[in-house]
Design a binder for these strands. Structure first.
Lengths: 199, 199
DNA sequence: GGATTTTTATTGATCGGTCAATCAGAAAAA
DNA sequence: TTTTTCTGATTGACCGATCAATAAAAATCC
């Protein structure tokens, strides 16, 4: 059974199991043993592939962040106008691949972890900066720079807010409607910013 | 030292210490012993006043929610128009007494806890419903009902989002500016809703 | 091509430590 | 003397991490 090149397979299985178990319990109160079991291996082996539980969780978040980035880039390719590109970014946040119970749970845990673990805080900062930069890049083409920064912050806050509010399980009812809330914010704020500037 | 009528005093001290320790560590990974020590008593005594650690945390959140409610009502008394009353609700969320590091940390932990502990989930639902109800009550006086519900949801999401984004410590810079982000959303959305309806 | 050595993969058992919760009893009012 | 308040010590359980040992492939040698 033991073959060469198991490392990437095992690591992927552990990352996937970590996200799954966080989703199942809604917290990081999951033993490494339970995660390992779900991934089909022993506790010791899990520890041989990840230095610590923290490192395992960080790998899981990097995976989620990576998938999100892929989703954004894929949608951006199909978008031409700044408006379409903004919608693409928002849609990526609320796509079926991202806006799921266990992903949302992981995000919540991530926010808490970022208060305690410096590496998690760093990762969160990077994500935030990148999102902000992406939003501003599009917005400044259609609204004044000052408004662009402001609207970008509002958009990011609302995305996170919808995530947080989507967390209490039992009802993740309407992907489209939640995303629509953010896109509506963008539409109206953009129109308003230009109206004021045009005068 | 041991006197009659210590219960409310001790309980208040424990609730306060719980919030403080959550703020200090940014998580619920605080021992009851540490909380008790901060509150100036033994671990055993803390357990005699609260059935469990969960119960202690819930009491802390009820306290925060209670203070928030008081702050809202105090501000509502001074407000006359629906617009002022909406601003009062938002201002309460970002007042100096609410938008503090340890309160924000407690909120984050609360969201995670609500995924696991049914009683926390219940408390969170109640808070959400009340906030929504308050917002809609004011909004429906100045915009169509359908818009009111929509704007209320957006406002609530943005409040939570700003909280979550305010959590990564090191910079809780501008109370007023963050609150302004939400109030701007309200202003613009209200104007937009009426514009569309008037036509 | 078979026997060996080396490398990689894997696990059961365990260690060291932590922590929530309990209990029996001390200390101080009433 | 009774009641309330309080604590040190302890219990029982859990968990992250480690380690020694096993198993199986791959590489090397004869």
């Amino acid at each position: 059974m033991p073959k060469v090149g198991q490392k990437p397979i095992r690591r992927a299985a552990l990352v996937s199991a970590t996200i799954g178990e966080i989703g199942r319990t809604g917290s990081l109160d999951v033993t490494v043993g339970q995660i390992a079991k779900t991934a089909g291996m022993s506790t010791a082996l899990a520890h041989s592939y990840f230095e610590s539980k923290d490192a395992l969780f960080l790998a899981a978040m990097r995976h989620i962040l990576g998938e999100f980035g892929i989703s954004v880039r894929r949608r951006l390719k199909k978008a031409d106008t700044p408006e379409q590109r903004l919608a693409a970014i928002v849609d990526a946040s609320f796509g079926q691949d991202q806006f799921q119970d266990h992903i949302v749970s992981a995000w919540l845990v991530f926010y808490v972890e970022a208060q305690r673990a410096p590496e998690a805080a760093r990762l969160l900062r990077i994500y935030g900066a990148r999102l902000h930069s992406n939003l501003v890049h599009e917005l400044r083409q259609i609204v004044p720079l000052k408004s662009a920064a402001n609207i970008a912050r509002g958009t990011a806050a609302m995305i996170d807010g919808v995530y947080v509010r989507g967390a209490p399980k039992g009802g993740n009812p309407n992907y489209k409607e939640t995303g629509h809330l953010v896109k509506e914010y963008l539409d109206v704020m953009i129109a308003y910013a230009n109206e004021n500037n045009g005068k």
